[in-house]
Design a protein around this nucleic acid. Sequence first.
DNA 1: ACCTGAACACCGTTCAAGT
DNA 2: ACCTGAACACCGTTCAAGT
Lengths: 221, 221
Amino acid sequence: MMGKLTRQAVVEQALEIGDAEGLAAVTVRRLAQELGVTPMALYWHFKNKEQLTIGMADHLVEGFMIQEDFAAPWREQLHELVSGLVRVLRRHPCATAVLEEVDHLAVPSFLRVWDTALGLAKQAGFSYEQSCLISKYLLQGAIALAAGPLNRHGRGLTEEAAAERLRVKRLTLQSLPSDLYPHIVEMAVPLAEGSGADLYDTFGVDLLVAGIEVMAARSRA
Amino acid sequence: MMGKLTRQAVVEQALEIGDAEGLAAVTVRRLAQELGVTPMALYWHFKNKEQLTIGMADHLVEGFMIQEDFAAPWREQLHELVSGLVRVLRRHPCATAVLEEVDHLAVPSFLRVWDTALGLAKQAGFSYEQSCLISKYLLQGAIALAAGPLNRHGRGLTEEAAAERLRVKRLTLQSLPSDLYPHIVEMAVPLAEGSGADLYDTFGVDLLVAGIEVMAARSRA
DNA sequence: ACCTGAACACCGTTCAAGT
DNA sequence: ACCTGAACACCGTTCAAGT
C-alpha cells in the first residue's frame, strides 16, 4: 500500500484479496484501489489481466522445489513431490482457483515442478509415454486434492464462523429428500465434517502414488 | 431460437455457447440475444446467473445413472460409475468448467451420483468415514480426469485447426529453455500429443480405482 | 404468467496525455 | 519510465411497467 508499485507487490495484493474474498473479487479496479493507484497503472506492469493471473499462479508455486534425493526409491520421491505441492497450494485458499484458470504452460514455476516429475518418472524406468501420463495424473491429482473439501470457499474465517458453516452444511445434507439421497442423508454428519484436511490430503496422495505403482506393476508384467 | 422460452431451452443454449466458445462466453446478455429475447426475460426463469449455471451442471449429469449390478464386485461397480461419469462429462467441452464453478451440493443429478457412490462403498464394507473419503476421491477424480489434457479449451474445432493447435503446443514446449526444463523439452512430442483421450481416461480411472483398492487392503490389514 | 425498457453499479481495456 | 483521465464496450441485476 505504501511501498513502490511493483509486479511483486501487485501479485501479493491480488493473492491477499483472492484468499480473503475469492478469486472473483480480484478485479483490476479493486486491486488498484487497494494499492492506492489508478486502474490503468497496473497495465504498465502487466499486459492484461491474464498475465496478472499467471503472475499469481507463478508466485504460488514459486519457492517450492524438492531436493532430489537420489538415494530414495522413485516411489518416495514422487510421493514427496506431490505431497509438497499439495502443501504449498493449501497455504492459499485461492490457489486452486488460480491454477484452474490459467494455462499451466505459461507458469514457469509450475513447469519446473512438471519437469521434475517427468525426470523422476523417466529415471524410474518408465517410457516417454508412460512418464507423460504419470506426471499429468500426479500434478492434476495434486491440484484436485488441494481443491478438496477443506477450503472450497476458504476465507480467512474465524473459529466461530467455521463452526457455523459446518452446521449449515450438515443441516443442508440432512434436509435433503431421503428417498432420493438415502445414503447422503444417512451419512450427513461424517460428510459435512470431512474427517480433517490433513487426513484427506495424506490419504489422497497415498491413493495417487499407490495407483501409479499398480499401473506400473501391471504394464511391466 | 424459435420455440418457447423455457428453462430447458435456455440451459441447452447456454451449453451450446459454452461448448463452442468457453464458459466465459456464456453471458446473460449474449444468451438472451441468441434466444431472440431481452436479457431480463431470463430472470423470470432463473433467480440469477448462479442458478442458471447450476441448471447447466444439472443438465450435464442428468440422464447418467448406472444400473446397480449387485452381482458384480464393488470394485467393478465403482469402476463403472467413475468411467461412466467421465464419459458423460467428455460429451461437453465446457462440462468441467461448469462443475468447477458451482457448488456440487446444489446440483441434484450430481447428488444422485454421489449417493450411488456412497451406497456402493458402504455396501462394500467400508466404514462411514471411509465411504465419505472414497466417494469424494472418486468423484473429484472423475472431474479432474474429464478436465484433462484433451479439451482444455475444447471448442468444436475442425480437424485442421486441431492439428495446428497441436503443432503450436509442441513448438511451445520445444522452444522452452532446455537448461531449466530439460525433460519437458526432451519429451515435447509425446507431451503435446498426449497419447489420446481414450487411453488417458481409461488409465486414469484404473489408477483411481486401483488406488482405492490398495487403501482398502491396507486399512483392513 | 411472462416479457420489456430504462437505469445502476460494476467490469477490462485503449489511447492520448501528463511528469 | 511510470502514472493519470476520459472514454468505450461490455457485465449482472433491480424495478416499474406493459400485455
